Amino acid sequence: MAKDFYGELQLGILGGGQLGRMLIQEAINYNVNVHVLDPDKNAPCRKLCNQFECGSLSDYQTVYRFGKGLDMITIEIEKVNVDALEKLEEEGVLVYPQSRVIRLIQDKGMQKQFFKQNNIPTSPFQLISNKEALGNTQFQFPFIQKLRKDGYDGKGVKKILSVDDLDNAFEEPSIIEEIVDFEKEIAVIVARNDRGDVSTFPMVEMEFNPQANLVEFLISPSTYSFEIQQQAEDIAKKLANDLQIVGLLAVEMFLTKTGEILVNELAPRPHNSGHQTIEGNFTSQFGQHLRAIFNLPLGNTAARTNAVMINLLGEDKYEGLAVYEGVEEVLAMDGVYVHLYGKKYTKPFRKMGHVCIVSDDREMAIVNARKVQEILKVIA
């Protein structure tokens, strides 16, 4: 980097949600000046950064104006104006992950084509231009339909079980893919810096909330065989190198019942599948992302202990000013770390925080995590 730390570097983050908040908490250790752009005037980052601007992430002029004069820009959400980032890159602002990587990952169809072109294992798929084209597909029912753009946190995904579901299918450009008969959903987070160093975090196992389709329960490290874990990490490293990304890349995968690993989706930023690294690993995913974009040596990703992460979601049927029930009770338990995201309002299944439970006894960590799930609630 042209500038050293010590308060000189001006870092911009597009997005002021919980990922940006936790990134700022780590960036304070590097003494950089953090600027944040977010459309929500009550965004979780608003009081933690050096400069907060309320504005659209998808508007060209807003993003360009925000980035002008900064040394570096990173993201905590992919839905940003890539044309503005390209222009800023041309003018010498460092953008990590690079605008070309963000553009590719914004489009699930382009993602899938990239997997195919680079021999990355993934489920069979087909690009669909509109709902009418669904009626002409050769795919057998049932299958999954995903919007090519703007889907996140389980939104933009539909199961098409039979011809009866076609009327309710998405109209917009989408992909359809075979439903994978998986044993477990897994993830690997990989980091790459500008000098080409690549490092993975240990593979994690995930369970999803069936209603919200969000990660609800994550266990680290995995107890699957060394061969399976190594294969998953090798796939993540190949993706990072094929993309030539600078920063973090979260790779969500399926482990099938026949032992095959298939890549599902990518996220070029800190990710829900890495929150447990704050307490559970020698380097957190947020620290690693900063090391990668600052082109510093990558940190030790080994697990310190067993860690279970649970998402703290807004309870169903509650909407309004957030009220947290059971915080004191769970904090009285050993090895429980509560992270509240500073969101003023709750609504059903909104991510309001997460809790990490650590223990040298893996089963005890899981038992305690289940207790926390029962006790800690976000209502209104």
Rank of each mutant, 00 (worst) to 15 (best):
V355L: 11
V246M: 11
K317E: 09
Q244E: 15
A302V: 00
K116F: 13
F208V: 05
F170G: 04
V215F: 15
T305C: 15
A84G: 11
K3D: 13
Q211D: 13
Q18G: 10
E315H: 07
I228T: 11
A169R: 10
I102T: 06
C49R: 10
V327C: 12
G196P: 09
A27G: 11
P142V: 03
L147M: 12
I160L: 15
A133D: 13
S174W: 06
N272M: 08
F254D: 00
E185T: 04
E233S: 12
A232Y: 01
A133E: 15
P270V: 03
S56Y: 03
Q61I: 01
K149L: 13
G135V: 07
K116P: 06
L248A: 11
N136R: 14
A191H: 04
E227W: 05
G16C: 12
A332M: 14
A369D: 01
N168R: 14
R269F: 09
D181G: 08
N281L: 05
D40F: 07
A2M: 10
L37E: 01
V93Q: 11
S359I: 05
R148N: 09
A365R: 01
K377N: 05
A292L: 05
N193G: 03
S162I: 08
I175P: 03
L340W: 11
H289A: 11
R148F: 02
G274M: 05
G314W: 01
I176G: 01
A250R: 10
D360S: 14
G280C: 14
K108D: 12
M309E: 03
G274C: 07
A187E: 07
E227Q: 10
P121I: 00
A27R: 08
D181E: 12
V101H: 09
G274Y: 02
L11S: 06
